[in-house]
Every structure is written in structure tokens, then in C-alpha cells.
Design a protein around this nucleic acid. Structure first.
Ligand SMILES: NC(=O)c1ccc[n+]([C@@H]2O[C@H](COP(=O)([O-])OP(=O)(O)OC[C@H]3O[C@@H](n4cnc5c(N)ncnc54)[C@H](O)[C@@H]3O)[C@@H](O)[C@H]2O)c1
Ligand SMILES: NC(=O)c1ccc[n+]([C@@H]2O[C@H](COP(=O)([O-])OP(=O)(O)OC[C@H]3O[C@@H](n4cnc5c(N)ncnc54)[C@H](O)[C@@H]3O)[C@@H](O)[C@H]2O)c1
Lengths: 216, 216
DNA sequence: AATAAGTCGTGATTTTATTCACATTCTTTT
DNA sequence: AAAAGAATGTGAATAAAATCACGACTTATT
């Protein structure tokens, strides 16, 4: 599944869902074609970078013309496996977890939170946003064919839950806790560390002031 | 404020809050010294990268010894301006916004959400997590000396609100909406795009399978 | 006091990502 | 049908980040 196109840089791979979303928007707006320059303005990525990114998949566009929106869309849909839904489990139905359950990740997306877990008996039973909430003790019973988990438990619980997830066959974890969890080599973890994001934004503001405008 | 240490790579700057948090943990555990190797295991960053990162600030450690935890901590506290609190406003008290208000970003942090805004009259008045919620019509009246805003409004509102924030003097925006907002050059925007994060995790799982373990 | 073990700081190298710049090709206009 | 304009795809250049690898110094041990 990967060897055919093994050379796609990680930086490119991370931008693909973004491209997909904006191409989708264009399609809904009824646009028939788009240039890398236009797309660049929409997604805020340099147009040369966009052309380079697309070129890893072959020649998707036409010189002098740009890209056909319909074609791009169907190409990216295939590439991002948009027709096949990936099952996701969420662990920790607290502030953040509840927000995710209410949000419909499916709108534009090939993923679906199918079940949630919590340790607090008060959270159980109710379907939050249409997703059933089970007790975390029953994790292993319900987690069948679930490839991805979203971790929104207290950071002290993160490592323990992670180990159970891995044993239960999960192979990707989106970790929102501040803990840096340890996993075997074949498991992929993406950390989204909101405090770090906020702090680093503040650091950049103080230490890397951007050009003041010359007025408009 | 920046010229003294102008050469710190962005990748390094993004890791600083992470280092700070873990050094803080070590301090609370009563550890007196730490090596780049130990720290590496905790934060999951290569030890050479850590030494390189630290070296941009001069010689913080001692050869053959490692780093003094107390010294590192006080150094990073200064560097990250932990003694000075940055005021933050949050716009959009919905699922995600409410979660952030309940979360105490201050725990380990130099930032504080001081006020929130929403367009829905039902959300007003109540202090969520101790933060007052005002009507978005009054944005300009309340936003004094607020450098940073967190955007958790519907994506259709993002650009309009952004323009008002910029006019009101905000210089950094943490954007959780899927919209790619346009800002003048002197404004810094960090995008946290949760759908993209989830989709790209799925993409990596399918296209970049990691080494299977040889068992243990 | 000498030896061994541990660890930093950094020059050099490698890897990854971005950007430039232009020949080529397609579209549109005259 | 020719000329002008638009936009791709990519080799080459540049920039940014990560990693290797080792000399220099510190601490611990015998
Ligand atoms: N809320 C935010 O804005 C925010 C911001 C940054 C980071 N985080 C991090 O995200 C995580 C969740 O934050 P939150 O604000 O939603 O916390 P929360 O306390 O509201 O939610 C945690 C939930 O996990 C459940 N839980 C506890 N132990 C469990 C276990 N062993 N198994 C399953 N469920 C368990 C709790 O019952 C609770 O419902 C935390 O690690 C926090 O540090 C949150
Ligand atoms: N909740 C999630 O898990 C999640 C995940 C990914 C992205 N997002 C994005 O984050 C944003 C917020 O998501 P949410 O789930 O919290 O949505 P939400 O609808 O629950 O909250 C949006 C809030 O903004 C308020 N609002 C609307 N117009 C406003 C305006 N002009 N000024 C001020 N407030 C206004 C609404 O009253 C509402 O309270 C959206 O853009 C969404 O796409 C959310």
C-alpha cells in the first residue's frame, strides 16, 4: 500500500488533508479549474510548494491551464481513502473529550468516533453526540478493528491507558495530554499539546516581532 | 528584546515550552541533575537535538556532569517569561471554547484567558471557569492590552472576527477553525486544525507502516 | 594519583523542506 | 495562424533541521 508512492515527504503528507478540504470547497462553489497561485492564497502555502507537493503524485495539472477541480478532488479522495471510514475510539469524556464527541468529524472526513470510554460511572450509558460511552474497564471488549484512538484523559492516566490500547490493537494515537507517552516502534503517536502551542505563540510574539506594516 | 538571541531556530523555539514543563516535573520530583539522554527519553526528542537546542543559549550544562535542574529551571523561566502573564481572549464559547475555559492553562503557564466573547445571548453573563463572557458586539470595549486571542467560532465567522481582533490590537491568534485566515504581515497566526491532524494520522498509518516489532 | 566512565558543546555531515527560475506547453486573443 | 499570456513541472539552489561523532572536561573509582 505504501511502496508504490513511498517517497512522499512527511511535510507534504501533512498538507494533503488541507488541500483536500479546500479543493472540496472550490468544488462546492462550482469552480471548474484552479491554479497553484489561487490555491496558495486560500491555504496560505507557497504556490511552488503546492506544485511540488502535487508533483509527487505525477502530473495532475496542465501547463498553461492549472488543475481541473473535479479531477483533483477525485484524485485526493482516492489518495486519502475518503471512501473508507476509519474507526476511532475516544478515551476520557471530560471537557475536551466531550467537545470532540459533539463535533462531527465526519463532515469532511474519513474518520468517525465510534465509541468513547471513561472511568467515571456518571458519564456512562448516555450517547454523547450519538457516540456510546462505555466504562474504561471494558475497553478491550469493545475495541475491535479500531485503528485509532484519541486520548483525552488526565495526563497521569495516559501511559497506562496507552499500553492497554496498544495491546488491544490500536496502531495510531492522537494524544492531547501533556504526557509524552512511550509506545513500541510500530505504533504512531501524534501529540497535540495545546499549552505548548499557546506558550510558543507567546514566545514567538515576544522574541520574533514581525515586520511592522508601512501603513496601507 | 529579540536581537540579543536572534538566531534561535523556530523548531527549537517550539520545543522550549516542552522542555520547561519536563524540567519543572524533574524539579518537583526532587531531581538535582539531568543529562540530555535522560531528558531525551522523557520528552522523546533526540539527545543531540536537545544539546543543540540548549547550546543556542550558551553553555547551560557541564561536561561530564549534565545539567543542574534548578539552574535550567530558572533559566527557562526567565527565557519563557514565566513571571509575566500574557492576557488572552477567547472568541466563541461553544464546545471547544467552553472546554478551554474550564481548563486551567495557568497551571504551568504564563498565559491566562481573561475574557471570552460569544454572539449567543444565552452564553453571556455567566463566568465559565472564572472567566467572564461578554457579547461579541462589545469586543473592542473590553480588549485592552490583550495580545493573544484564541479563535473557536464557526469557520464562517473566522475572517470577520479576525479583522476586528487585529484592529483592536491583538497580535497573535491561535486559530482552531478550519478557515485559513488572512492577516497583515505583522500578525502571527498559529493554526491548530484538529480534523487535519486526525486525517493525517490516518494517512500516515495507511501509507507509512512502521517497522513491525520482532517481538519481546 | 592515575584510570575509567560519563556527558557536554560543537564542527561536520546528512537529511528534509522550501523556494527560485525557466523551458515547456496549453489557452486566449487578435 | 501567429503572438501573447498563463501556469505547470522540475532541476538547481538555498534554507532549515536533525544527527553523527569526537575532543574536552567532570566526576567517580581504584
Ligand atoms: N481542556 C483543555 O482545554 C485542555 C487543554 C490542554 C490540555 N488538556 C489535556 O487534555 C486532557 C483532558 O483534559 P480535560 O480538560 O478534558 O480533563 P477532564 O478532567 O475534564 O477530563 C478527563 C476525563 O477522563 C476521565 N478519566 C480519568 N481517568 C480515566 C481513566 N483511567 N480511563 C478513562 N477515563 C478516565 C475522567 O473521568 C474525565 O471525564 C488532560 O490531560 C489535559 O491536560 C486539556
Ligand atoms: N469541537 C471540536 O471538536 C472541533 C474540532 C475541530 C475543529 N473545530 C472548530 O472549532 C470551531 C468551534 O467549534 P465548536 O465545536 O466549539 O463549535 P460551536 O458551534 O459549539 O461553538 C461556536 C461558538 O461560537 C459562537 N459564535 C458564533 N458566531 C459568533 C461570532 N460572530 N462571534 C462570537 N461568537 C460566535 C456560537 O454562539 C458558539 O457558541 C469551529 O470552527 C470548528 O470547526 C471544532
Amino acid at each position: 500500500m505504501n511502496n508504490e508512492q513511498n517517497k512522499i515527504p512527511q511535510a507534504t503528507a501533512k498538507r494533503l488533508p488541507l488541500y483536500y478540504r479546500f479543493i472540496n470547497n472550490l468544488h462546492h462553489q462550482g469552480k471548474l479549474r484552479v491554479s497553484s497561485k489561487e490555491l496558495s492564497e486560500a491555504v496560505k502555502v507557497d504556490s511552488a510548494t503546492i506544485r511540488r507537493d502535487f508533483s509527487y503524485f505525477g502530473a495532475l495539472g496542465k501547463k498553461g491551464y492549472g488543475y481541473n477541480v473535479e479531477y483533483l478532488l477525485s484524485f485526493f479522495r482516492k489518495t486519502l481513502d475518503q471512501d473508507e471510514v476509519t474507526k476511532v475510539a475516544l478515551i476520557g469524556v471530560g471537557n475536551l473529550g466531550t467537545a470532540f464527541l459533539h463535533y462531527n468529524f465526519m463532515k469532511n472526513n474519513n474518520t468517525k468516533i465510534e465509541m468513547a470510554f471513561d472511568a467515571d460511572p456518571n458519564k456512562l450509558g448516555s450517547d454523547i453526540g450519538g457516540v456510546p460511552v462505555y466504562h474504561v474497564d471494558d475497553l478491550e471488549d469493545h475495541l475491535k478493528n479500531t485503528a485509532v484512538a484519541i486520548l483525552t484523559v488526565p495526563s497521569t492516566e495516559a501511559q497506562g491507558i496507552t499500553e492497554r490500547l496498544v495491546d488491544a490493537g490500536v496502531s495510531g494515537i492522537l494524544n492531547f495530554t501533556p504526557a509524552r507517552i512511550s509506545v513500541p516502534d510500530h505504533i504512531r503517536v501524534h501529540h497535540i499539546d495545546l499549552s505548548v502551542e499557546l506558550q510558543s505563540l507567546v514566545y514567538f510574539l515576544k522574541h520574533y516581532p514581525l515586520e511592522e506594516e508601512a501603513g496601507d
